[in-house]
Structures are given as C-alpha cells and as structure tokens.
C-alpha cells in the first residue's frame, strides 16, 4: 500500500466517523422534536383527516373548528389562567421564602442550625409520593381543599431552593457590606431587602425558572385537591377530556400545543439560562 492510499483510507475512515456521529446527533434531535411537531400538525386536522389512514405530514384546514371544539369540551382559558396565576404567585413567594431561609443559613450562627440543615436534607430523601396522603390531610384540616393556595404554598420552601439561595449568598454577598449596612443603622430586614436581595439576582432568576417550570407542569397535587372546573389547572383539564366519548383529538392536540407554548417561548429566548437553571442541582 502506497502512502497516498493509506492517507486516503485514514481520511475516509475519519469522514465515515464524522458522518456516523452527525447522523446519530441529528436522528436523536429528530426523535426529541418530532412529537411536538406532530401534535401541532394534528391540531390542524379533525377525525376524518386523522383517521384517513396512511401518514400525512401536511397541515390540515381544521384549525379554526378545532379551536371552537376545544372551547366546547373544556374551559381552556380558565385552565390556562389558573395555571398561570398559580405559577406566578407561587414562584414569587418562593423566591422570598427561600432567599430568607438561605440567607439565614448562610450568614448567622444560631442554635438548631445543624438540626434544620439535617431536616432539610432528610426531607429531600423522602419520595414525594409518600407525602401525598399527609399533604391532602393537612389541606383538608386547614380547609384549603379546592383552593389555589393549597397547590403552591407547600412548594414555596423546597429545600433545593433554599440550598441554592444559601450557596448564592455565600458566594455573592460580602460580609463587609452587611456590617457596613448595620453600622449605617439599617435594620436586619432592611439589609436583607435592599442589600442582599439585589445581590442575589442571578440566583433568584435561576430559582424562578425552576419553580415556574415545576408549578406550570405540576399535575399530581392539583389532581388531588382541585375539584371544581373553575379552579382546575390546564394539565388537569387536558387529562380530563380523555374520558369524553368521541374525543375530538384535533382539538385536544391544539389545546396541548397551546399549553406548552408559554414554556417553549420562554425556552427559545433563554434556553441557556433555563438549561443551566434546571440542572443547577446537578451541575455546579
């Protein structure tokens, strides 16, 4: 074998390698994206075109009638608004509660600090499904059944959020600044509100992403406590129409597609931050 031949073979080998790699990457991208595209396509079709047999990737012309059907089978925008208000309120309150707790754990030395830490770690190890019955009992005892408060309040103090805030406080709030603020006569609460919170902004943004995505997508707790149609969230409503006889699947797919659009829109504009935020527990 001449030298030229050998180089050719090595080059070919590399090119095939790149080709296989790129095909694998593209194929996998196709697998992850396809269901979303497919649901958007189905949103423009009705039963007759959907059951036509064969595979048809073209858009149908039933979008408008599907929208009409969607509003008929469920109170779609009520569900969207309920999900939205739960997610916004829950996220806002959790930013305050978690940052307060994280700040306290990062700055102060006090009795019971280690115990509280231990309880937080231990509570993260308990599988959420086991907490479902107690959660429901407390909601019932407090008379919070069928309220939105019940769906977001318990999630405003997630240990993972508190740890995240503690971490940010340790790394981005200089102790000197806190002392200077105290010397200037600012109260503890004022120091926290006007010195610490602004410094925690990047951490708060991360936590906001995690909380919003969680609350928007949450299904189990709403399923358990929200039972009147005017209180239900969108995930509950979508799942609920599975039982409707002769389900207009085009309409349901339209609803499903619209329901994931807010998060996808957010993701399109800030995918880097969202990926970093949602894996922040794992990737330091």
């Amino acid at each position: 074998m001449t030298h030229a031949q050998a180089t050719f073979i090595v080059n070919l080998y590399h090119k095939i390698g790149y080709g296989v790699r790129n095909i694998a990457l593209l194929l996998f991208a196709f697998i992850t994206i396809f269901p979303f595209v497919w649901s958007a396509i189905l949103a423009t079709k009705d039963r007759t075109t959907m059951f036509g047999g064969g595979i048809d990737f073209s858009l149908g012309d039933k979008l408008v009638s599907n929208y009409g059907n969607l509003l008929e089978i469920m109170d779609f925008w009520t569900g969207m608004m309920n999900s939205f208000s739960i997610s916004v309120v829950g996220t806002a309150i959790s930013l305050i509660f978690c940052s307060m707790a994280g700040y306290a754990l990062a700055i102060y030395k006090f009795k019971g600090r280690n115990a509280i830490f231990g309880i937080m770690v231990a509570s993260m190890m308990i599988p959420p499904v086991l907490t479902l019955i107690p959660y429901y009992m407390v909601i019932n005892l407090l008379g919070l059944a069928n309220t939105h408060l019940a769906v977001w309040l318990p999630f405003t103090i997630q240990p993972i959020g508190i740890f995240l805030m503690r971490q940010y406080t340790v790394t981005s709030v200089p102790k000197d600044l806190l002392e200077a603020s105290k010397l200037d006569g600012a109260s503890e609460l004022r120091t926290y509100w006007s010195i610490v919170l602004p410094l925690l902004r990047p951490g708060l943004a991360t936590l906001a992403i995690v909380q919003f995505v969680f609350l928007w997508n949450n299904f189990l707790q709403p399923l358990v406590v929200l039972n009147s149609p005017d209180k239900m969230v969108i995930t509950q409503m979508l799942r609920g129409v599975q039982g409707v006889p002769n389900t207009p699947w085009g309409a349901v797919m339209l609803g499903t597609t619209i329901s994931i659009l807010p998060l996808i829109a957010l993701y399109m504009t800030a995918s880097k931050q969202m990926i970093a935020g949602l894996t922040s527990g794992a990737v330091k």
Partner: peptide, 19 residues
C-alpha cells in the same frame, strides 16, 4: 433540542404520545 422534552409537562407529552 435534546433538553426540550424536559421542560414540557409530563401530562402534555403523555397526551401527545397517547395519540
């Protein structure tokens, strides 16, 4: 692209797969 399914709700994607 790969991370997209993670941010969408399990109920929504399960409905899509159900269809």
């Amino acid at each position: 692209a790969y991370f997209l399914p993670y941010i969408t709700s399990t109920v929504a994607v399960s409905m899509i797969f159900y269809v």
